[in-house]
């Protein structure tokens, strides 16, 4: 008899195995979110929204009321819910294209208005679902389908540093952090603090550094090396804004 690892309560077994590619980071982020929700015992209150792109594969992932929206539009949908149901906990889940490109105005303005929602953005340095194009987070010189000779900083600018930006515009009491799927325990802690900030009436934002072996065209070892040696060097992992202003690496 095989022993199955213990899964969080909101992990919906009926829809597993999930539809993400082998080696994808999304399921690790989603599991961290599940554990955070379970520790806070708020399953009954959470409404989960997912974007277009790979994140939409999470539409039936959880034992949570969930809605799949349009590309970049999950933040306003969850905001719209939360404005009339302040008793709920709203989670908007998206990729880097959804949050930093097509939906950047929603991210910026929901942070500025201190909407009582939690935005979780998965950074895998490119558009996964559409086949690996350059995203705002693509690293300098990184090859993608639309930067086949490597991303030129002169032509396309520098990669977006989302948490740094959001931390600089969000209100006191809000929570902003960047975690990584290479440290799920820490990521879960960040997400939990983000949900707590929402429960305390503030905006929160988490970016999670993630993996995409399919579009990076990397084997397991190279995938891990790209995350640890390149992404984590450019995108600093840690807390950028905490209600108590305490920093942690």
């Amino acid at each position: 008899m095989s022993v199955q690892p213990q899964m969080p309560r909101t992990w919906r077994t009926e829809t597993k195995p999930h539809k993400f590619c082998p080696g994808c980071g999304h399921p690790l982020v989603l599991k961290a979110l599940s554990w955070a929700i379970e520790e806070l015992e708020i399953e009954e209150k959470v409404v989960f929204g997912c974007d277009i792109g790979c994140s939409l594969l999470a539409w039936d992932f959880f034992n949570l009321d969930s809605v799949q929206t349009h590309h970049g539009r999950t933040t306003p949908v969850i905001t719209g819910i939360k404005r009339v149901r302040p008793d709920l906990v709203g989670v908007a889940y998206m990729g880097d294209g959804g949050g930093y490109a097509i939906g950047s105005q929603h991210l910026v303005n929901s942070a500025m208005r201190n909407e009582k929602v939690t935005v979780i953005l998965v950074n895998n340095t490119q558009y996964g679902m559409t086949g690996g194009q350059m995203a705002p987070t693509t690293l300098p010189n990184q090859k993608t389908e639309t930067t086949p000779y490597g991303r030129s900083v002169e032509e396309t600018g520098l990669p977006t540093k989302g948490p740094e930006m959001v931390a600089s515009i969000s209100s006191e009491g809000s929570y902003v952090a960047r975690g990584t799927v290479s440290n799920v325990r820490q990521l879960k802690k960040y997400i939990k603090r983000a949900l707590e900030a929402q429960l305390n009436g503030n905006f929160s934002f988490i970016e999670a550094l993630s993996l995409c072996p399919t579009n990076w065209r990397t084997n397991a070892e190279e995938t891990w090396k790209f995350l640890e040696d390149q992404m984590s060097k450019y995108f600093t992992v840690g807390e950028f804004k905490t209600p108590a202003q305490k920093k942690e690496g």
Partner: peptide
Amino acid sequence: EAYMGNPGTPGVDRDPVHLRNT
């Protein structure tokens, strides 16, 4: 009527609501 966020714990007291347009 609410489409989401009705009383009860999804997966325990009732089925979760999963809405999509894809």
